[in-house]
Computed example of a mutant assay.
Amino acid sequence: MDYISSLRQHIGTQPIIMCGACVIIENENGEILLHHRTDRDWWGLPGGAMELKESLEDTARREVLEEVNLVCKKLNLLNVYSGPELYYKYPDGNEVYNVTVAFTCKDFQGEIVVEKTEGRNAKFYNIDELPMNLSHTIKPILEEYITRRKG
């Protein structure tokens, strides 16, 4: 059982602070990988919650491998995000205030294979042609990333 599921057995659905990581994976064409979630009709970034004894870099790499079957090599820190705009209530009622460490990665290998319990699809998008239904929790991350790229 993972850390968050174990914690939920004791506290139920009440809000918790959840630390995690996500990765903006950029291909050779400058496009970024988005992951279409199954819990909502939203596109997000590969990533998820940190497990006990894991570094945030390990969390990022594990989540990318689990969700889209890619191996991230060199990770670069983009920023750390927190606050009310990263609040999320899952369809099952669980509430979280995310603390998300965002990394970027251009050095990866593998072929995209989407793990079907968490994702419907994953594909690369041009930063000027992102889908409208983005998860609200990744919007500040993508805004900063795009501003830095264009700046």
Results as ranks from 00 to 15, higher is better:
residue 145 Y to P: 02
residue 65 L to Y: 15
residue 81 Y to E: 00
residue 95 E to A: 04
residue 5 S to E: 13
residue 29 N to V: 06
residue 134 L to Q: 08
residue 136 H to E: 14
residue 150 K to W: 11
residue 44 G to H: 03
residue 100 T to K: 12
residue 69 N to W: 01
residue 30 G to S: 03
residue 72 C to N: 07
residue 122 A to S: 12
residue 117 T to G: 09
residue 35 H to Q: 09
residue 124 F to W: 06
residue 36 H to C: 04
residue 90 Y to K: 15
residue 104 T to K: 06
residue 104 T to C: 10
residue 143 E to R: 13
residue 133 N to H: 12
residue 54 E to V: 00
residue 67 E to K: 00
residue 51 E to Q: 15
residue 128 D to G: 14
residue 47 G to D: 08
residue 139 K to G: 10
residue 99 V to W: 09
residue 139 K to M: 14
residue 95 E to W: 04
residue 43 W to K: 06
residue 76 N to Y: 10
residue 72 C to A: 06
residue 131 P to N: 11
residue 72 C to H: 12
residue 114 V to D: 08
residue 126 N to R: 13
residue 150 K to V: 10
residue 105 C to I: 05
residue 16 I to Y: 03
residue 40 R to P: 03
residue 124 F to Q: 04
residue 60 A to M: 00
residue 123 K to D: 01
residue 139 K to P: 07
residue 52 L to G: 05
residue 15 P to F: 01
residue 150 K to I: 12
residue 121 N to P: 07
residue 90 Y to C: 10
residue 96 V to A: 09
residue 118 E to F: 15
residue 66 E to G: 01
residue 109 Q to I: 12
residue 147 T to E: 15
residue 35 H to P: 01
residue 125 Y to V: 04
residue 66 E to C: 09
residue 54 E to H: 03
residue 139 K to A: 11
residue 28 E to M: 14
residue 74 K to L: 08
residue 43 W to H: 04
residue 149 R to V: 11
residue 20 G to P: 05
residue 55 S to V: 01
residue 31 E to V: 03
residue 69 N to L: 05
residue 116 K to P: 06
residue 49 A to L: 03
residue 92 D to M: 05
residue 111 E to T: 11
residue 34 L to P: 02
residue 109 Q to L: 15
residue 80 V to F: 05
residue 61 R to G: 02
residue 112 I to P: 02
residue 71 V to A: 06
residue 125 Y to G: 07
residue 104 T to Y: 13
residue 23 V to C: 05
residue 29 N to W: 09
residue 88 Y to N: 09
residue 85 E to P: 09
residue 59 T to N: 08
residue 137 T to Q: 07
residue 32 I to F: 05
residue 138 I to G: 01
residue 100 T to V: 14
residue 97 Y to V: 03
residue 39 D to M: 07
residue 10 H to S: 10
residue 30 G to W: 00
residue 112 I to D: 00
residue 91 P to K: 11
residue 149 R to M: 13
residue 14 Q to C: 07
residue 78 L to E: 09
residue 91 P to A: 12
